[in-house]
Structure formats: structure tokens, C-alpha cells
Design a protein around this nucleic acid. Structure first.
Lengths: 350, 350
DNA sequence: AAAAACGGGTCAAAAAAAGACCCGCATGGG
DNA sequence: CCCATGCGGGTCTTTTTTTGACCCGTTTTT
């Protein structure tokens, strides 16, 4: 006996309803993020004709949710308050709330937030995930703690969406890892600095390549400055990180073909901090570097906030966050549903 | 600060939504009550073209909620379970749940059930009210008690919708009043008997005209049989009754023009058991009869279940049930919203 | 000052919905 | 037993809605 959600009930007698709701919500959200914005760019974004978008806008205008001005389309006050207040209703209606509950039990984590939409289809979903993660982060902050943030687009989204309001006193933000040769916007250092700025907190950076030989690492550890920061990182109370798919991360690190093959053989699906996980959640390989040093970081911090989205990340998410009762998991509808599919429970039907 | 319901949120971005939901639900409900039923009669009932109704049916059939057979349209199993399980979701969505809460506080009664729809537009609403009242009645039943039911269409609906299942042992059903020269189907005696039959309980009838002179009454009270039943009625633990508008009840009792005028002058709005109430809830007049005898019945029973619907009854409902903390009130959306209007709180917008 | 982008208007094409009517068939009453 | 009734389904035309395409005057930006 599975308890039926409102969504199942109401969608049955009005099958066109979820589509309408999601469409309008996405439109409203897009305007929220890129106002003032013109019809044509909106139409292009959603890949619909200009005329059909116009009709939608007309409806939203009649509801006094958007204002249409010569500069473009903007949300009214009512529209803004709606776009921030509606997600709970919408999530409940779309069955995402029950999905969250299922995932909490399935993955045995502390809490799960499922953001409507699919990251792979709509870039805004990433921002929404950032917002959700930022909200959780704010709740976890306490005076005097150390906050470690990792790199990647997901964490960058968190930094972007974090509101600019002071945090509890004496918080230090540190990168959870070194550089990875990525774009600077997505490096842990950059993100740590931006988060610290938003929180009006202190921050320390780790100017160190992520990939390093054991010898080089040992030598560097004798450097007082570096040792200091590494200790700081290891004393972190909160850890925020994304999740990579094994294949893409290996490729991005420029792994040799034989390494790729080895990873595939061992069944690597997910990656975090240079540690590769198989689908049973075991670490099967780590790059010889800080990964070694940071490997058990996740075991000591009080709160871990994991942010990841997109259907292709589903396997990696399951591998990485499974059975971690202190983890908060923020993901998108696409990944969440894919996970349920992996577990054979088709769950909500769309 | 009024808490916003899901309805307000979602209806804002999809204004056509409540209409669709209500339309489909009414259709489903109508089929439920009159299956197997044909397209044409359904179209006539809802006063729409046959073709538009057909489209609705097609949608419901695609959802596998109805089965279309040569004999007519029937609900599938899924449809039946939906039509009985959906009202909570729908009510919450339409804001009726918050309406119920407001009315409980406003009228200071034990509980309020608002049934979707308007009795004056859709006769089925009466049946739904009957179902809701029947459910409450079942909850109130205890072994050995006496149940008094009144007359009228609302109580008749309760009797109709009461499921045919045994009640706790040794329950006696009695009419709460005598006859009123109405159709036999709506007389208290008839209804009491039908309720008893459904509950598989005992019943006693009161073969006495409702309108009687004091002398005649006194004489009849010497009759042992009659006295017995009246005592039984007065020992009732549960009372079920409807509510009449003062004007209509006076007319139906064949009151003389001068009496009508007097009632109007005194501001009579509601009637129960021959007692006329003004809008402040005071009894301003009662017909010389059992009313006298039964006047304070309502003050002694443990549970009172009041069933009334239609916008025109709003005033009467407020007058009669105001400030009775042991009353359950079952009414329809029409009456409920009209009551809120009377109180100046427009509340939900349609 | 020029160029780009904005919303709004308009008109024809296309699609969807609605109305009207007929047909074969199962059912139920005579 | 048969026939009249009411059933769903099909189909046609008409009407309404939706969509696409394009232009225009104005504001904003560069």
C-alpha cells in the first residue's frame, strides 16, 4: 500500500495539468532570473514560436504576475513573491515531495531536496539547485566553524545563489581541494573566496595543484603555510561538494587510456576529490595527491552538502552518497527520477 | 497575515485549472451516481453540447477512469476509487479546507465539512452532503444510544447515502418530530425508518401531526404509547437535522399572512423544529406544538449533526448553528462562501 | 546619432473545438 | 419474439482558437 499523493489524484482527472504548471513556472522563473527580458529571447530560450510565448505572457500579465515594459518583461511584486513561494506547492503537486521521502529512505541520508526540472534541458535548474543548497548551508552555519567548499559548476551555482548577508561570526571558508586546471570560475579556490565574500567571512586559499606525486606532497607539507591550510581544511565542520561521473572526470584529468580502461574494469561510476567509487559505494582508486590526505575528510565533518544534477549523474550520486546519514543531498528531478528507475521503482509517471 | 493555500499559488499561474478540475470531478461524480449513463443525458445534465461532453469522456477514458459500453458510461475500478478518494485533495486545492477551518472558528462549532459545488446548481451536491453527514454519523454511533433524525431533503439524502452496514448494537432510531404534511419521502418518520434499516437498528415512530394545540397535546401525552416515544426522543444522544429558511418554512406550514408579516418584523431568518431564529441566533417564535416540548432537545444531546446547503440558506445556517460547540455542520461550497461574504470576508475568489 | 531590441499590431494559415446528423447495434419492454 | 429506445461511434461542416510571419513605432543601448 503506497500512499497516493495529490499529484496522482489530480493529474488523473486533468492530465494536461502538470505540463501547464511546469511550463508557466519555468517561464516565471526564467523571467525572474533574467529580467528585464524580451519576448524573442524568451521564445528562443524555450524553443517555441514567438506567438505562443506571447500568449503565455498575456496570461501571466492578466494575472498581474509580470509587467511588460519597453525595457522588457519583469516580474511584478506578486510575481516575485510567487516564484519564491510556489516551489513547495508545485513540488508537492508534481510528486517531488514523496520522491524526496523515498530517496531519504533509499539512500539513507539526512535529507534530500529535489529541484523541479532537468539540468540537462534547462540551465536554470542548476541555479535552483544552488539556491536550495545555499539555503541548507545557511541553516548549518554556526559561529567559529570552518567551511570547506569544493569546485565544479554545482558549487559555483551555490556561490552564485548565496544571498549577500552576514553569517555567524568568525567563520572561515577554505577550498576542499587544490586546482584542477579547470576554468577559474569553477575552481575550489575561486568558489571559496566568493562564498566567503557573500557570507562576509574570512577565507584562506590553497594554491596547490590537485595532482601531485607523493614525494612532492611530502615536501610541500613541510611548508608551514601549506600545512596550516591543510590542517584548517581537515578541521572543517561543513563540507560542500559536487559529484562527477567517473568517465568525465577521468577524461578531464587527462588520464591515460590504460587508466581509463582500468577504471572501467573496476566499475567506476562516480568521483569526488579524486576518489573513484564503484556502484557499491567503495573507493576503488584515487589519484596520488591530496585525495589521499583528504580521503577521510568526509568521515569527520558534521554536515556534508552534496549538490549534483542531471540524469547522467544518477549512478554516480547513488555510489557516492549511499548510506551517509550526515549528508544533505540536493539534486534535480532528472537525476532523482533516474535513480528511482535504477532501483526499478518507476515511481511517478511522466 | 493569512496563510496562503496551495490553491491560491497554483491557480495564479494556471487560472484555468480550478475550472477544469471541478468540471472533470463533477462529471466523474455524476457518472458514479447514475451509471450506466449515456452521453446525451450527461450533456443535457451539464447543459453543454454533446460534442464537448464527448471530448471530456474521451479524456477520462484515456485515463482509464471510465469504461464506455453499449449500455452507457460506467466508472472503472480506478475511477470509482478516485471519485471517493479525491475530495480531500480537491477540497484542499480549491481552498475549501481553509474555508472549513475559518468556519469552525467563526461559528464556534465542533467541525465543519464543506462539500464542493453548489446545491442550487447541481442536485448531486445534496447527495455528497448526505455522504459526508453519514460518515460523521457513523463515527458518532455508540452501542445503546438513541438517534433522533429530523425530516427534509437533507436528512433524506443522509438516509440515502448511508451505507448498509450494521451499527453498534442496540441503537434506536426515532423521528425528532412529527409529520409536516410533506411528501412522505421527506418526513421524519420515513427517514428514521430508512436510517434504522440501513443501520440494522431498531426504530420507533411518532404518528402525530407536527402542528397541534396545547390542549390536544396535553391529552395525547396521557396516552402511554405516545408518552413513551416522546421520552425516547428526549433521551436521544445524537440529533440529525436540517435547516429551513424562515420564509419558506412559514409558507410551507401555511402560515397566515399576518404571521408571515410578524416573522418578517422580528427578523426571522432560520427555522428548526418549528422554532424561528433571528440573525442573532435567538428563538423569536415557535409553533404551538411539540416544538415546545422539544425546544431544548438540542441542549441535551451529545452530538448534533446539521446538514444544509445552498446560498439561500447561508443566513439561516449562521442563525441556527452559531456558537454551538457540539454541532457538526455539513454544508456546500455555495452556502459556505455566502456565509463568508456575509461576514465581509470574501475569502476565496471565484 | 545610430543600431539593436523592445512590445504591439495585423493577417493569413493551420489546427482544434464544436455543432449537427446519421448509422448500426445492444438492450429492455411489450 | 420483435420492435422501439437509447447507446456509442463515425463523419461532415462550421466556428473558434491557436500559431506563424512580418512590420511598425518607440525606447534603450552603444
Amino acid at each position: 500500500m503506497t500512499l497516493t499523493s495529490d499529484q496522482e489524484n489530480l493529474s488523473l482527472i486533468a492530465p494536461e495539468l502538470p505540463e501547464i504548471l511546469v511550463r508557466r513556472y519555468r517561464l516565471l522563473r526564467k523571467i525572474y532570473y533574467s529580467a528585464p527580458v524580451g519576448r524573442r529571447s524568451l521564445a528562443a530560450y524555450f524553443q517555441v514560436g514567438e506567438r505562443v510565448l506571447r500568449r503565455e505572457i498575456d496570461i501571466l500579465r492578466e494575472q498581474r504576475l509580470v509587467a511588460v515594459e519597453p525595457r522588457g518583461i519583469t516580474l511584478t511584486e506578486a510575481g516575485e513573491s510567487l516564484v519564491t513561494s510556489i516551489p513547495p506547492s508545485l513540488k508537492s503537486f508534481l510528486g517531488l515531495t514523496v520522491l524526496e521521502e523515498k530517496l531519504v529512505k533509499l539512500l539513507r541520508v539526512k535529507d534530500v531536496i529535489v529541484v523541479p526540472g532537468n539540468l540537462e534541458n534547462d540551465p536554470i535548474v542548476l541555479w535552483e539547485m544552488g539556491r536550495a543548497a545555499a539555503r541548507i548551508l545557511r541553516e548549518c552555519l554556526k559561529p567559529g566553524i570552518v567551511l570547506a567548499v569544493s569546485g565544479g559548476t554545482s558549487c559555483a551555482a551555490l556561490a552564485d545563489m548565496l544571498s549577500e548577508a552576514p553569517a555567524p561570526s568568525d567563520i572561515t571558508v577554505v577550498p576542499a581541494r587544490g586546482g584542477l586546471g579547470e576554468e577559474v570560475d569553477y575552481q575550489a579556490n575561486t568558489i571559496a573566496a566568493r562564498v566567503a565574500q557573500k557570507l562576509k567571512a574570512n577565507y584562506r586559499l590553497l594554491h596547490l595543484p590537485d595532482f601531485l606525486s607523493q614525494e612532492a606532497l611530502k615536501m610541500l607539507l613541510r611548508e608551514k603555510k601549506i600545512k596550516e591550510i591543510l590542517d584548517l581544511i581537515n578541521s572543517a565542520c561543513i563540507l560542500v561538494h559536487g559529484i562527477g561521473t567517473a568517465e568525465e572526470m577521468a577524461r578531464r584529468r587527462g588520464a591515460a587510456p590504460e587508466v581509463m580502461e582500468m577504471l572501467r574494469e573496476k566499475g567506476a561510476v562516480g568521483e569526488v576529490f579524486g576518489c573513484f567509487y564503484n556502484s557499491r559505494g567503495e573507493i576503488i582508486e584515487h589519484v596520488p595527491s591530496l585525495g589521499l590526505y583528504l580521503e577521510d575528510l568526509g568521515n569527520r565533518v558534521e554536515n556534508v552538502i552534496v549538490v549534483a544534477g542531471g540524469r547522467k549523474k544518477a549512478g554516480a550520486i547513488v555510489a557516492v552518497v549511499g548510506n551517509h546519514p550526515r549528508d544533505y543531498l540536493v539534486l534535480d528531478e532528472g537525476a532523482a527520477k533516474k535513480i528511482m528507475e535504477l532501483y526499478g521503482e518507476t515511481g511517478v509517471n511522466f
